[in-house]
Amino acid sequence: MEAATGPSVWGLRGGERRLGDRLFSGAAIASGIAILTVLAGVAIFLLIQAVPALSASTDELAEGKGLVEYIAPLAFGTVLAATLAVIIAVPLAVAVALFISHIAPRALAQPLGYIVDLLAAIPSIVYGLWGIFVLGPAAVGVMKWLEDNLGFLPFFQGPASVTGRTMFVVGIVLAVMILPIISAVAREVFSQAPRRQQEGALALGATRWEMIKMTVLPFGRSAVISGSMLGLGRALGETMAVVIILSGSGGITFNLIGSGNPPTIASNIASKFPESSGIEVNELILSGLVLFAITLLVNMGARSIISRSERHAAEGKKRA
């Protein structure tokens, strides 16, 4: 305590810092504030622009529907498409990540990793075109088969689309789009799985797959979850691919293979905005606010899962 009042033996008095430090912390603070300002600005913009729609009467609104009636199918379609994509993508991404980190010979693993990463570099509009010209037509036969053989499930009740512009195809395309992010996160963590635990499992007489189940997957579990959340976030907001592919002419339905699918919020905005005017624009912005809220919730969920697993890891290390 007494030493603090006198001049420091190190020649630096309290509060005096070097120029470089000051510049760096200034720049860092400014960047942080700028990002928060932009985020707040977007949120405020959405709120202000959405308010007129809230007070408008039903017949002023698009399609003469109430707000809930209008936005609920959109929100449903958004969540359905993104969930479907995650359900398809996660097992694939985990398999790809495991193949690269643990199964493929090194000479094959690295190029394969690059190729998977390259999938993320393809613009979404290209995915959309691929979906509509290649995957959609190719899926017509599959969807017909699903309707004929699994039609008792609500997902495949049909009638199957003859053009392939369905939620089913959108789910697959979105899955391919989010595969790289999930698999990259998973791969990174899988390859850091502690070697001594893997050897421990093998020495017990585990096969490679049993070893992976016992050590690598539990170790990478939280990474897979947070990668999936990131993927889900991307799938929720994906616009162009969905606009191009999806025949969004329906309401809330679990039927994945028909023509009448619920559109997603983002695709609906992209599709309706150019020809909208007046209160309808406010309504679209309100739907954007709903999407913003959904995405925010997903990201917060991912954050909390990641930080919880980090805390677990830290506690584990302390004990060990």
């Binding site: 698009a62 399609e63 689309s161 512009r165 025949s247 002419s249 028909g258 023509s259 009448g260 559109p263």
Partner: peptide, 16 residues
Amino acid sequence: DAWPVKGGEAAEGTSG
């Protein structure tokens, strides 16, 4: 301007 019937095949733009 907006197609009023639900459940048909909907496509983006003339080209769609």
